[in-house]
């Protein structure tokens, strides 16, 4: 009973307080009038950019914002001093992404690997919210198609490759949750459909499950990781799961993302079914993504 007394007094105090301060506590009155228990707020900035490392994130450029991305991968770190530890080799992807609405974004890109053009659509179907009847996760739906535009040196009895045989499609649901201002996690069930595969042992459809996370270490820097698990049996046995580890550095209008990964390609059709590097044997490609945002249509 003795231990309960302070709580009792505290309770009494809170009961008496509103009456005592009713005359002067205008801010309290204001808060009472403006606090809406039904109000839901969208959780913003689950990830810093539209890309994590290999994977795209649930984020889209804001409405009326154009993002210009430069993605770069050098050669493998274990390729020796002769290749300057990979820096002699470079693969590039340039892309533009545009937010048509706050939910819908479109993008185009060009990878130097296999001279590939890609186009994609991203739609933020569900957004994580706080407040009453909070939505625990954000879901963004992603679809892309890519075309390989390499010239082929055909063998005498080989068929010319048709346009259809050059196409690859990727479909993905990105499911993310920002657990705290620092920690965000994303899952990405993915389907890749290849119209043309190199050998009979490979399937046209490849299923994969990706996972990614972001942990902030300061207000403007964060550690990132992403990983894709290939469901067995759909690709030839020399292809591996893609793993990437990185750092996000943010300055005014830029986000710099530095990373190492065992994948050379930077779009889904490359890094999911065609990753050959062994991460822990040092087949690591050092790479970076730089995103610059331009405001095409100001919000106000």
């Amino acid at each position: 009973m003795k231990t309960l007394l302070p709580f009792f007094l505290l309770g009494l105090g809170t009961l008496l307080a509103p009456a005592a301060y009713a005359q002067t506590d205008l801010l309290g009155q204001l808060e009472e009038q403006t606090t809406d228990p039904q109000k839901r707020e969208v959780v913003a900035a689950t990830f810093k950019g539209t890309h994590i490392i290999n994977s795209q994130s649930v984020e889209t450029p804001g409405k009326g914002t154009m993002a210009f991305l430069i993605q770069h991968r050098f050669g493998t770190l274990n390729s020796g001093a002769y290749n300057f530890f990979g820096l002699d080799q470079a693969v590039l992807r340039l892309s533009l992404e545009y937010g048509l609405t706050s939910r819908l974004a479109v993008g185009v890109g060009r990878s130097s690997q296999e001279k590939t053009y890609d186009g994609f659509v991203k739609y933020r179907a569900i957004r994580q919210t706080t407040g009453a009847r909070a939505m625990p996760v954000s879901v963004t739906l992603f679809a892309s198609s890519s075309i390989n535009t390499l010239r082929f040196n055909l063998a005498p009895n080989e068929q010319e490759r048709t346009t259809a045989s050059r196409l690859t499609y990727a479909y993905q649901a990105q499911i993310a949750r920002k657990f705290s201002p620092e920690l965000s996690v994303q899952l990405m069930p993915t389907l890749i459909h290849r119209n043309y595969v190199a050998t009979a042992a490979e399937e046209n459809d490849v299923y994969a499950l990706g996972g990614a996370l972001r942990q902030k270490i300061t207000k403007r820097t964060a550690l990132t990781a992403d990983y894709y698990y290939l469901f067995p049996g759909n690709t030839a046995s020399n292809f591996r799961n893609a793993l990437g580890l990185g750092v996000d550095l943010e300055t005014g209008g830029h986000v710099f993302q530095l990373h190492v990964t065992n994948s050379l390609g930077m779009t889904e059709k490359f890094f999911i079914p065609q990753t050959t590097g062994k991460f822990f044997s040092g087949d690591l490609y050092f790479g970076f993504t730089v995103a610059r945002n331009f405001t095409v249509k100001p919000q106000i």
């Binding site: 900035a45 450029p61 804001g62 914002t65 919000q299």
Partner: peptide, 12 residues
């Protein structure tokens, strides 16, 4: 005016 600026304003 800029969506990214708004994000930085809130986040950073």
């Amino acid at each position: 005016k800029r969506t990214l600026m708004q994000e930085h304003f809130n986040e950073n």
